[in-house]
Write a protein that binds this DNA or RNA. Structure first.
Lengths: 116, 116
DNA sequence: GCAATCGTCAACCGAATGGTTGAATAAGCA
DNA sequence: TGCTTATTCAACCATTCGGTTGACGATTGC
């Protein structure tokens, strides 16, 4: 019953995992290549990738014998939006903001700009 | 040596702590009052407040025998900025939110219950 | 077929986390 | 003074976390 926000924030709380996400920002990578810069076992990296995957922050697809890791930045959206609630400091609007999020996150009400 | 980002994200990874931050968004509160809605001991809440404090997300000031907790939203900035690095999701649709507010505030506003 | 590569699994370890209780400290009030 | 309220501290407990190692299944290439 652990909420998605719990998982996302917990996943982001580890510097190794944040580094992995940054690496994937540049390109998709195989597990072995992800592991290469780190001074820890492949199994450890595999676990980190598991955490990132179940948080939805990356996806993994096996092609042949290599498993490719792909960043899924949309998973950060919920967390980002939650934090924005503290950015513009308007106590009055908090409730409205939460309702806005309910609408906003349940589906694209309004495409940002000129289609997707 | 644990980085600030580690602490901030780890602090946000717990639903009780996120709920506390949301409560503090409305107003400063005494520790006892923060604890009141939760079904756990005061000591547990005190620990959570300790975590939030050392992450810099709140500050605590003792006046008389009561200790006041105050939100420090600036502490979220670093985390927010880090996440923006992944942002195909623009920093919330502020425009959309404002449009939403315009509609919302002209109609009936019903208070939902607090918490996440 | 056989060996090397890719990645996970299982068991284990020490440390951190989230909670509990009960005692201790500190401040206000009768 | 002594009682009550506010908060933390200390010890303990179960669970999770981040890491290790070694064995294993799957895939590829010689």
């Amino acid at each position: 019953m652990t909420g998605k926000l719990d998982q996302v924030f917990a996943a982001l709380a580890d510097p190794t995992r944040r580094a992995i996400l940054s690496m994937l920002l540049e390109d998709d990578m195989a597990v072995t290549d992800v592991a290469h810069p780190f001074e820890m076992s492949l199994a450890a990296i595999s676990k980190h990738l598991g955490v990132l995957t179940s948080a939805g922050l990356i996806s993994q697809e096996k092609r042949g014998r290599v498993k490719w890791c792909k960043l899924e930045p949309d998973a950060l959206r919920g967390a980002s939006v939650w934090m924005q609630g503290f950015g513009q400091f308007e106590p009055v609007n908090l409730d409205a903001f939460e309702r806005f999020l309910a609408v906003e996150l349940s589906g694209p009400v309004m495409p940002p700009e000129a289609g997707e």
